[in-house]
Measured scan of single mutants.
Amino acid sequence: HDVTIHAGDKTIHVHGASEEFLRIIEQAKRDGIHEEELLRLIEELVK
């Protein structure tokens, strides 16, 4: 999957995102996670 995530003034493109990655991001959004926290989460996941 190619994913584009908008968080605040940043746009992150993730190529080859796994289903698990997508679920984590969707869950985080539903939980109302702060955008900066979401960015950190994404950066950890894509290392």
Rank of each mutant, 00 (worst) to 15 (best):
I5E: 04
V3K: 07
L39I: 14
L38A: 01
D9I: 06
Q27A: 13
Q27W: 00
I33W: 14
E44P: 02
S18N: 13
I24C: 05
L45D: 01
V14T: 03
D31K: 10
I5H: 06
L22H: 06
K10P: 03
I5M: 02
R40M: 11
H15Y: 00
E36K: 10
E19Q: 04
D31L: 10
R23Y: 04
S18E: 07
E35Y: 15
D31Q: 12
E36N: 13
H1N: 13
R30C: 05
V46K: 07
H1A: 13
E37P: 08
R40V: 10
I33F: 12
V14W: 05
K10A: 09
E37D: 15
T11W: 02
E19F: 02
E44K: 11
D31F: 02
H15V: 10
H1Q: 15
Q27F: 01
E35C: 08
R23E: 15
L41P: 00
A17N: 04
R40K: 15
L39C: 14
G16S: 07
E37F: 05
F21H: 12
L41D: 01
T4F: 01
V14L: 12
R23H: 13
E26Q: 09
L39H: 07
A17E: 03
D9W: 00
V46F: 10
D9K: 09
V3G: 04
H34A: 15
G8K: 03
A7V: 15
L45N: 03
E35K: 13
K10I: 13
L38V: 05
D2V: 15
E20P: 00
H15C: 08
K10F: 05
H6S: 14
T11R: 08
H34C: 07
S18F: 05
E20N: 04
E26A: 13
A17L: 14
S18Y: 07
T4V: 15
E26S: 09
L22Y: 04
I42R: 00
K47D: 08
F21G: 06
L41Q: 02
E19C: 03
R30F: 09
L45H: 09
S18T: 14
Q27D: 12
D9R: 03
D2F: 12
I25R: 00
E20Y: 01
V14C: 03
E20V: 01
L38G: 00
L45V: 08
E20R: 01
L45A: 07
H6A: 11
G32H: 08
L22W: 08
E36C: 08
H1E: 10
I25L: 14
I25Q: 00
I24W: 08
I42K: 00
K29Y: 11
D9T: 13
I42N: 00
E35L: 15
G32A: 07
E19R: 01
G32I: 04
H13S: 10
I5L: 04
A28Y: 04
K47G: 11
R40D: 08
L41Y: 06
R23M: 12
H13G: 03
I24Y: 06
I5G: 04
A7P: 05
K10V: 12
D2P: 13
I42L: 12
E35G: 15
E36Y: 05
I24Q: 10
F21V: 11
E44V: 07
V14K: 02
G32P: 02
L41R: 05
E35R: 08
L41F: 09
D31P: 02
R23S: 14
F21S: 10
R30K: 09
I25V: 13
I12L: 08
V3C: 05
L38Q: 01
K29L: 12
V14N: 02
A17S: 05
H1W: 08
K47T: 13
K10G: 07
D9F: 00
G32W: 03
E19S: 04
E43W: 03
E35T: 15
E26C: 06
H13R: 07
L38M: 09
I42F: 15
I33N: 04
I12D: 03
I33T: 08
A17H: 04
G8P: 04
H6I: 14
T11P: 06
S18L: 09
K29F: 11
K29G: 08
D31W: 01
A17V: 15
G32R: 05
E36V: 09
G16Q: 10
K47S: 11
E44G: 12
H6Y: 00
R30Y: 04
L45Y: 14
L45M: 13
T4N: 08
I33Q: 08
G16R: 01
K47A: 12
E36M: 09
D2Y: 08
I12G: 02
G32T: 03
V14Q: 02
H34Y: 10
V46P: 02
H6C: 08
K47H: 11
R30M: 14
E26W: 00
K10T: 12
R23A: 15
H6K: 14
H15P: 07
L22K: 02
S18M: 03
I24H: 06
S18H: 05
A17Y: 04
I25N: 00
G8D: 07
E35N: 12
S18K: 06
K47P: 10
R23P: 04
E20M: 01
R23T: 14
H34D: 13
T4Q: 08
R40N: 11
T11Q: 10
E26G: 06
I25A: 01
T4P: 05
R30S: 14
V3E: 04
I12C: 03
D9L: 05
L22E: 11
I5A: 04
I24L: 13
I5V: 09
A28R: 05
E37K: 05
L38I: 08
G16L: 06
D31H: 10
I12F: 04
I42Y: 06
E44Y: 07
G32E: 06
R40G: 07
V46W: 04
H34G: 14
H34T: 14
I12Y: 02
A7F: 14
K47N: 13
E35A: 15
E44N: 13
L45P: 00
I5P: 03
V14I: 13
E44A: 12
I24N: 04
R30G: 08
E19K: 03
H13L: 06
V3Y: 03
E35I: 15
D9E: 13
L41S: 01
H15S: 11
H6F: 00
E19L: 08
I24S: 07
I24M: 12
E43S: 11
E35Q: 15
V46I: 14
I24V: 10
I12T: 05
A7R: 02
G16H: 10
E36L: 11
E26Y: 00
L22Q: 10
L39P: 02
I5R: 02
K29T: 11
S18G: 11
V14G: 02
H15F: 01
L38Y: 07
H13C: 04
E35H: 15
T4M: 01
